[in-house]
Simulated assay, not measured.
Amino acid sequence: MTVLGAVFRPQLPPERLRDIARAADDAGLEELWLWEDCFLESGIASISAALAWTERLRVGVGLLPVPLRNVALTAMEAATLHRLFPGRALLGVGHGVQDWMGQTGTRVESPVTLLREHLVALRALLAGERVTTDGRYVKLDAVALDWPPSTTPAPPAVYAGATGPRTMRLTGEAADGTILTGGTSPDAVRLARQLITEGRESAGRPGRHPVVVYLHTATGPDADARLRAELDTVGDAWGPDGPYGVAGPAGAVADAVRELAEAGADTVVLQPTPDEPDPEGFVRFTAAEVRPLVPRTE
C-alpha cells in the first residue's frame, strides 16, 4: 500500500502545530512528518506534542541529526515515545546539515562512520539489548534501557535519511527504512532502491525495507510560481536528474505520487512550499482530495 503523508514545516512557529496536527487527524491523514532543522524546532518536543494532541495520526521525525545526540539519549526518547504512543511514532536519524553541525561544534570527520555506529547501537538498545561498544564516535559501557519499547512482533523501526550512494547503502545495511529528501525524482528513487538493496544483501538482511520520499507540492493560487521558486532554491536533490516536484490540483498531485510509488516509494509525504498560504487546508487537501486518487493496493 502507498502511504500518504504531509510535512509540517518548522518554518512555521511551533504554536501552529496543534491546529495542523488536529486538522490532519480529523481529516484522516495517515502520517504527519516533522523536521529537526537547525535552529528552528525540536523534533522530540514537537512529535510528543503532536501525538498527545491527536488520536490516530502517525507522526514522524525525519530526521534527528546524530552529531547533536548521544545515542543513549536518542534511545531513551524513542523508547518513551513508543511506549506512550504504540505504533504511532516514526523516528529517523541522519547526518544533519554539515554547516549546521559545524556551527554547533559537533561536526565530525566521518559522518558515515558516526551514522553507522549510531544506528547499530540505537537498534540494539531499542531491541532491549545491553550494549557495550567502543567505536570511533559511539562509546557505551553496559548500557541498557530500563523501559525499552515492546519488541512484539518486532522492535520499532529506525529510519535513516540518505542523499548519496554511500549513505544509501548504509541505510540498507544498518537501518530499518530510508528517508529520501524532497526533490528526489522517480529515477532517483529507483537508483536509491538499487543501492539500498546492495547494502541489505551485503549485510545479509532479507525482508521489507520501507522507503519514504518527500515530494515538493504546491496547489491552489500561484501554485506553479511557488513550486518553481522552491525548486530554484533546492540544493539537496539527489539522483540523475534535477529537483522534482508537482504543482496543480489533486489529480496532478496523485499522478506524481503514483510515479514515485511505482519507482519504489512505500510512503510519499507531500512537502508544501514555505509560503503555503493555508497549512491546515494543505493537510485536508492531502487526505480528502489526493488520498482517494492513490491506490491502496499492495
Rank of each mutant, 00 (worst) to 15 (best):
A237I: 04
T178C: 04
R226T: 05
V158M: 03
T219A: 15
M168Y: 11
Y159V: 00
G161S: 06
L145H: 12
L195P: 01
W147H: 13
A225T: 14
L231C: 11
A218G: 09
M168W: 13
A218I: 10
R190H: 02
L227H: 15
A174P: 03
G199A: 07
S185W: 09
K139A: 02
D141L: 10
R169G: 02
A237K: 02
A218Q: 14
V257G: 05
L140W: 01
L215H: 10
A229M: 05
G220S: 13
A254W: 04
L227R: 10
T171S: 05
R169N: 00
T171L: 05
V212F: 11
T152H: 07
V158W: 12
L231H: 12
P155H: 14
H209C: 04
G172F: 06
R258H: 00
R208Q: 15
A250H: 08
T178K: 04
L180E: 09
T217K: 10
V158T: 09
A144M: 05
A256T: 02
D255G: 00
G245W: 08
L191N: 05
A142D: 13
P249S: 10
T152P: 00
E201Q: 15
P243Q: 12
H216R: 15
A229C: 04
T151M: 01
P186H: 07
P156W: 14
A256P: 01
A247E: 12
G161N: 02
T181Q: 03
R166H: 08
S150M: 03
E198V: 07
D146R: 11
P148F: 11
A188F: 05
E230H: 12
G199L: 02
D236E: 03
H216L: 12
D222C: 08
R258Y: 00
T178S: 06
G204V: 10
D146C: 07
P206F: 11
G239H: 06
A254M: 03
G172D: 04
D255Q: 05
P165I: 00
I179R: 03
G182S: 07
G251C: 01
G164S: 11
L227V: 10
V212C: 13
R205Y: 08
V158P: 02
D224S: 10
D176K: 04
G164C: 00
T151E: 03
T163G: 00
G199F: 08
A218C: 13
I179S: 02
R190V: 09
V234F: 09
D176G: 13
V213K: 13
D224Y: 10
G183W: 10
R226W: 07
G199H: 05
P149M: 10
